[in-house]
Design a protein around this nucleic acid. Structure first.
Lengths: 341, 341
DNA sequence: GCGCAAAATGATGGCGCTGTCATTGAGAAT
DNA sequence: ATTCTCAATGACAGCGCCATCATTTTGCGC
């Protein structure tokens, strides 16, 4: 009984083994499997059979190193707890997969240092392109991005200037448009309830735009409640309870940092017996399906996250194909009047 | 004016350029940067400075090819629309990142053929390990997995036998435990509302377990409504409306395929003025925070998806470190009695 | 048959890095 | 001093594949 048998030599078959089995040279086998240059039909069949028989799986590390471009795309997102980024990732993956590309993922947790570290790490895999939803300005990140020498798409908002291309919309404009809507509905005493805004600068941009919209008619926010922690339904629920318990006079309308928060607000109203929008009006942001399934559909702004991801991936792939996609692509948002405001 | 200037020689700096700048040999630079073997302190500093000055980013394709193991882990999930899998991915990424690993992602869309194709594709990147939430039995996938020669963890359910390791729980047992709970609460005329079950075999396993639990006391499902399409809040809402419009006598309790569906059911009751659980009792599965934030907290079964992902990644990393994690790791589910049943 | 272009195949080198096995030199032990 | 040890460094080869440039074979017109 050998106590430590020599490592089983079951290494994965290589291209040269396939070539040998097929009775051709390595390079011919390579061409046959990739189908790029001319290979006689029965040569190709021989090679394909040999590859199948050996259960050959190409080694793309070697392939990429030797010549081709990688078929990996680095993706950096700030979070996955928020369905919004999962949607973007889904759109990305869908488009990438069509061309045989795959995302390598990093989550920055809204942390600039971690983002930079991730960027370095992912770049070391020599991806063909890079998609990111950035966290905040960071000098090191900027210079890494500029030096990346690959297509780079920044997603989610169009207010950025670091990347090669941008796909998204202006969160500031979205906030402003909600202000216009609420003003148009006659609301004047308006409050805002947000989650941990120090990290989520896009929510902050919406808030700024919202304030701008109010200012255009000489209004300011009646109350502003900034809560700790990431956005969630429970946080929105307790947030509205807290606001209504303390604000006097009570606001007539509340704009939440997003739909999760706003749905929590709706739940509070259901619990407290407040009628929507008579006693109080609520509005969110994102257009999640849950908001629309509520007994009183949520007034919100619909964004198309999946499409943002899809288009971002498409831009990467088209850049790699030598095309020149637009620098800025707006994926329009849309105000969805519900019955809560 | 050169019409086609020679490609700018701005190729990324290589290790040998760093070595030259630091006045040492390539291999010494390699060691200095990796910090594995003995390098004199000031040699290391020289190399580090040179690397920084050149903005050197290592090429891990070459590094992995030459010797080391890859620091990528292939991840195959059936969907990202469902927050459940985003949670798993989050847990995975969190643990992987701690050791400098990154997930390469593939989405199978509950399609066995696509799953197999993805597996081949991802394997071609020679990842260090593989984590997947499988879709269904598929002979080709099985043999690929067995031949993978790397740690493989299957997540979400423990009813599988293909992978090296398994992290999850028995969906069948979860379904059974919900049956016991509802029976214990006195419900007898019980219905089930599910989404497109042909794809989601875990939901099907829960249903089977649920039926088993009913059978133990001589009951069967009063009604079964299987809806087309992926699970969602709106689908659950229309589903319950449809069931109550057609079933006669009406069921006293409904078990939904998951929380999204059940929340939709709650919304229908709110709209239709049905009181919970007096007029009808509802139960879901997953323990999403939204269900707990409802005015009447949802009765459900909490699963810890993020932990499943975290532990799965941990098993991969420990296997790579030479340890032997358990073959089967149960991440317990927990019945959460709410006020809807 | 002959010449020639085009198709098919092959030989070579190298992508950027690391494993392995030298080699060097400085200090410890004798 | 002389040997020995061990830390520090380096030379070399090769990971698996593909780009480039031969070379051979085939097809085809006349």
């Amino acid at each position: 009984m050998d106590p430590n048998p020599p490592d089983p030599p079951s290494r994965r078959p290589t291209l040269s083994q396939v070539a040998e089995a097929a009775g051709v040279s390595e390079i011919t086998a390579s061409r046959a499997l990739r189908g790029r240059s001319a290979v006689a039909k029965d040569t190709r069949l021989k090679v394909e059979n040999a590859a199948r028989a050996l259960n050959y799986v190409p080694n793309r590390l070697a392939g990429t190193l030797a010549g081709g471009a990688s078929r990996q795309v680095a993706v950096i997102l700030p979070s996955l707890s928020n369905i919004v980024f999962a949607d973007v990732l889904k759109g990305l993956e869908t488009r990438l997969e069509q061309d045989g590309y795959h995302p390598i993922l990093g989550i920055s947790h809204y942390d600039a240092a971690r983002e930079e570290h991730l960027l370095r790490d992912l770049l070391s895999w020599r991806p063909a392109g890079l998609v990111l939803a950035r966290t905040a300005g960071n000098a090191a990140t900027r210079s890494l991005l500029r030096a990346a020498e690959m297509p780079v798409v920044e997603v989610m908002d169009t207010d950025s200037d670091v990347a090669d291309m941008v796909v998204g919309f202006s969160h500031r404009a979205a906030g402003r448009s909600m202000a216009h809507y609420l003003i148009g509905r006659g609301y004047r005493r308006i409050a805002y309830i947000g989650h941990d805004i120090s990290t989520d600068f896009r929510a902050l941009a919406r808030l700024d735009g919202f304030k701008d919209g109010l200012a255009e008619v000489g209004l300011t926010l009646a109350n502003t409640l900034m809560l700790d922690g990431p956005s969630s339904v429970p946080l929105g629920r307790t947030g509205l309870a807290q606001l209504l318990a303390t604000a006097s006079p009570a606001p007539k309308a509340v704009f939440f940092s997003n739909d999760d928060m706003a749905v929590g607000g709706v739940f509070h109203c259901q619990t407290a017996g407040l009628s929507l929008p008579g006693d109080i009006a609520l509005a969110g942001f994102n257009g999640l399906s849950i908001g629309q399934a509520l007994p009183t559909p949520l007034t919100t702004i619909a964004s198309n996250r999946e499409r943002i991801g899809f288009v971002a991936a498409d831009h990467i792939l088209r850049s790699l194909a030598g095309e020149t996609p637009p620098k800025i692509t707006r994926i329009e948002f849309r105000l969805v009047p519900g019955r809560t405001a």
